[in-house]
Nucleic acid binder design. Structure first.
Length: 560
RNA sequence: GUGCCCGUAGCUCAGUUGGAUAGAGCGUUGGCCUCCGGAGCCAAAGGUCGUGGGUUCGAAUCCCCCCGGGCACGCCA
């Protein structure tokens, strides 16, 4: 079945060419044929504003242009267009025959869990790198938001025909790991009653989890480190603490339904000398040079106010340098597109990274960066402290335990990722009747319940051939069919714009259309013919709810 | 000081190739099951889209000024 949008746009384009020919307008000057969904009832199923766009070129009022175009577009049974209306300042409104709605329904039943997929990605390779929190402490709610946005963006891209890899970048090489090791070591000596042997470092990690780590070391190694000079045991503390924290992070993400294909270690960049290789690459392209004993990136070539250091004069690479090497490695692995999910506090770093990508010889569009704004954690309207030292309900683990995976994922998706999010624990948990996630899940459970009831009453589910779909002509049924038809578009749009939040808005609208339909019509109660068609409609809604819920990683319960 | 993001109903927010009478949820008010799950539905009230200019057939959307809020600006990571 041909896509409706495509079909209409083709018809409009043909009408434009025909009119252009008549009026002597060169084809290149013609406006782009474009249709959209009108907002309001009575404005048709689809509408186009080309007449307004083209008024100037055709040197005629928009309404006149619209009329001329409308005359050139066939209506009637063969085209599937019931009628065309010119409205307002010059909109061309298309009223489609009900056949289109029926075809949507048939298509859903036929394609099943593949309904909504498209080939936007054309099999190209994309990497989504997200979370990537330093393994120096447990994940907090902010990481959780990034985790969901990255995960769902990846799922959307998969659904849209991209070949997707999810990656976690482990910052295991920097100073932070050493501070983690020193913090753990200090707590270990403190527990042993010898705090003076290894003082707690400045900027050390003060969370209670450091004591837990120290106690674990004590369990494994007893007091054996007391007799060693602290310098000699530091390596053990660092790697033990790092590995243990990373295991915790992996467990939390697993519990959150987030899985990665690749865990990429920053250390491996250095072990494989990727940084020097990157420097040589940039020098060869004249984007890096030596000065004052340091190596510099020529970011002024990309409108930066000054060049930036890659290798310090003491020989140690900057974080920026390792990041460039990392991104070079991504492209070397053959990704056509790379998506980074960052905390919004890194936004100042975006232009520099994009410059680096260009300096590597790629288009800056080959790197997309999603910025995740802060999560404002509330409890009953009161802010919850977010510092890493207090242990109360700030870690992702605690939130998941209290609120559950489904509600947490849903709430993290309710806002565009680059806007602040108020996350109220009480609302997400206790207000189950006002909670949108239950509203959506309830729609699915309700449908399952209808089918259970139907089975009990011995009602058979018919095949489409046995149904008269024309009976689905009430406003609620028409609206429901319209929503079902919208799903592939929403997927495509979400994948094209990297907007994960669209999916939950769509889910909500679909659930809303279903609940209205359910209340207006007694599905199992009326005549047999209409019942058949409505059950088929329910089956389709159930399918699409499942498909959309799978993308956002939220459960579709049979009952609640 | 320089740069980026945000400002839409009482509250929390949707709303982009510029489009028709600016939309939801919560809250408020009033209705709806003898029946498939009332975790639902229907309706009402609520707006100078921060302010002022500009661009044009047309601006919440694009441009400029100002006001208010957030963030970033290192040979840190």
């Amino acid at each position: 079945m041909q896509d409706v949008r495509q079909k209409l746009e083709t018809l409009i384009a043909e009408a434009l060419r025909s009119l252009g020919k008549e009026r002597g307008v060169p084809e290149g000057d013609l406006p782009e044929a474009f249709v959209e969904r009108p907002r309001r009832e009575g404005q048709g199923d689809w509408a186009s504003n080309v007449a307004m766009q083209g008024a100037k070129i055709f040197k005629e009022s928009p309404r006149k242009v619209a009329e001329a175009l409308a005359e050139r577009i066939p209506t009637g049974k063969s085209s599937g267009i019931d009628k065309i209306e010119i409205a307002g300042p010059g909109f061309i409104n298309f009223f489609l025959s009900s056949e289109w709605g029926h075809q949507v329904l048939l298509r859903i039943l036929e394609e099943g869990e593949n309904y909504g997929r498209c080939d936007l990605g054309q099999g190209r390779k994309v990497q989504v790198e997200f979370v990537s929190a330093n393994p120096t402490g447990p994940l907090h709610v902010g990481h959780g938001r990034g985790a969901v946005v990255g995960d769902v963006t990846a799922s959307l891209l998969e659904y849209a025909g991209w070949q997707v890899e999810r990656e976690y970048y482990i910052n295991d090489a920097g100073l932070q790991m050493e501070i983690l090791g020193k913090s753990t070591q200090a707590r270990y000596f403190e527990i042993q009653g010898k705090p003076e042997l290894a003082p707690f470092p400045e900027n050390g990690y003060k969370g209670d989890y450091i004591y837990d780590l120290a106690r674990e070391v004590q369990k494994e190694k007893g007091d054996s480190f007391l007799s060693l000079p602290p310098e000699e045991s530091l390596g053990y503390f660092t790697s033990f603490a790092g590995n243990t924290v990373l295991d915790t992070i992996k467990r939390d993400l697993e519990n959150f339904g987030v899985r990665f294909n690749v865990w990429f270690s920053e250390k491996s960049l250095y072990e494989k000398d990727m940084v020097p290789a990157m420097i040589e690459h940039l020098k060869g392209r004249n984007y890096a040079y030596d000065k004052d004993g340091a190596v510099w990136f020529r970011s002024t070539a990309f409108k930066d106010e000054k060049d930036r250091v890659l290798i310090r004069s003491n020989g140690v690479p900057t974080y920026f340098a390792s990041d460039i090497a990392y991104h070079k490695n991504k492209y070397d692995r053959g990704f056509d597109l790379v998506i980074d999910v960052w905390g919004a506090d890194h936004h100042g770093y975006v232009p520099r990274m994009k410059s680096a990508v260009e300096a590597l010889g790629r288009n800056s569009e080959d790197l997309q960066i999603l910025l995740i704004q802060f999560v404002n954690l509330l409890r009953g309207g009161e802010p919850v402290a977010m510092s890493t030292r207090s242990g109360q309900f700030e870690t992702l683990e605690d939130v998941l335990r209290e609120v559950g995976v489904d509600a947490t994922r849903y709430f993290f998706l309710m806002r565009r990722c680059d806007s602040h999010l108020d996350f109220d624990l009480e609302l997400a948990k206790t207000a189950s009747r006002d909670n949108p996630v239950y509203y959506v899940q309830y729609a699915h459970a309700r449908i399952c319940s209808i089918f259970r009831e139907a089975r009990e009453r011995g009602v058979e589910i018919s095949s489409p051939e046995e149904c008269d779909l024309h009976l689905l002509d009430s406003p609620e049924e028409q609206e429901l069919l319209k929503q079902l038809g919208l799903f592939p578009e929403e997927v495509a749009k979400g994948a094209r714009e990297f907007e994960a939040h669209r999916m939950v808005f769509y889910l909500y609208d679909l659930a809303c259309a279903f609940h209205s339909f359910y209340n207006a019509h007694h599905i199992l109660g009326e005549g047999e013919n209409i019942r058949r068609s409505r059950l088929l409609l329910c089956r389709a809604v159930q399918m699409v709810l499942r498909n959309a819920l799978r993308i956002v990683g939220i459960n579709a319960p049979e009952q609640m």
